[in-house]
Design a protein around this nucleic acid. Structure first.
Lengths: 191, 191
DNA sequence: TAATCCCAATTGAATGTTCATTCGGTCTGC
DNA sequence: GCAGACCGAATGAACATTCAATTGGGATTA
């Protein structure tokens, strides 16, 4: 992963912040340029179009999330521990990266994402599917499609990060553990 | 609730469909007008501005969701049954109203909704809070803030409706029950 | 070492388009 | 013949994108 040229990174970050506050509409290229401290034309040196910029930014952001998943999913430690590490880690990451979270949520619900490869080819979801597959194999999780388990768990963690990130609620570590436990209780076998 | 003038309703529905497919950007007023079979000026007879149109449409759509909640939350039937009725009902409603669902998701993640009254004053969430409050009172649910329970449950149901609505997954009635049971297992006491 | 060249990076004013909104006028039911 | 509903061409602002001109620094040459 070659380091991204400084200006390109500045454009990414500015776009993310502006889209968070003002949406895709409401974020003219001229504003991105000013905010990033570059000329309008410079953006077009790096990106073909606004659409391309948004799409590449999504990929850039998603790589960061994937990095968290890869770091926290370790086949060497017990699955249940791994579950808490992974989802606690993802929650914390989203919580600390509200820009990214808000940009993400706008993107995936927008028509930009409709033109993208389907879930099955998405590296992020592939990793999550494999993770839950392991839990099922080990007989720890209910026999529910990994796609469903991944969707439910991820949406739960995302919604909590949105809630606490917006300042409408505070969670301390203990409460977070409690919520993860609650999700675990839902998907775990036997009970 | 007085019946909405025909043209106004046509404008609402057209806006919802167009926003679903093309987003807020990508949905010019001229297109709404053509799609609804009215003149551009007519829209401005009913709405002050595009922003006003979007905002009112959100309220209009939310009332439909609230109607489902009110219909399915009945203090007379056992809480657990009520839980399955309510969330099964909401899932089915979202599933059958993809336009509304997609519009909703775009709206709540956009800056339009930032200018809105906070969760606590929102009738929809007030109803949900009360619902979960009841479950806690009756000792059936874990002692977790109703705000958290509502957020987790709603986001789970929404994400499933998005998934099946997009055609990436099919759920029959039995599988839906299984998923609701899974959510219940997570939040219910004792186990 | 200095002079020269090359080219990618950068600039920002100019362009053409798209869009929200306006408004003078028409229609329709009463 | 009045009032509200409705029309749609016209207006002006905002925007994405282009491009001719400038910069700067690393390689090449003398």
């Amino acid at each position: 992963m070659e380091p991204i040229a400084d200006k390109k990174k500045a454009i990414f970050i500015s776009t993310m912040e502006l889209v968070r506050d003002k949406g895709f509409h409401g974020t003219p290229m001229s504003m991105v340029a000013k905010h990033a401290g570059v000329a309008a034309g410079t953006i077009y040196h790096y990106f073909e179009s606004k659409e391309q910029l948004i799409t590449e930014l999504f990929d850039y952001a998603q790589q960061q999330v994937i990095a968290v998943v890869e770091q926290e999913t370790c086949a060497a430690i017990p699955f249940k521990d791994c579950f808490f590490n992974l989802w606690g880690g993802l929650y914390t990451f989203y919580q600390n990266n509200q820009n990214l979270l808000r940009f993400f949520e706008q993107f995936v619900n927008s028509p930009y994402s409709a033109a993208r490869p389907p879930l099955e080819e998405d590296k992020f979801y592939t990793l999550l599917f494999a993770f839950f597959e392991r839990g099922i194999q080990e007989g720890l999780l209910k026999e529910v499609s990994p796609k469903i388990l991944a969707t439910l768990t991820h949406s739960s963690v995302l919604s909590m990060a949105k809630l606490t990130g917006s300042g409408r609620l505070h969670l301390d570590r203990k409460e977070l553990e409690q919520i993860l436990q609650l999700i675990w209780d839902g998907i775990a076998f036997d009970r």
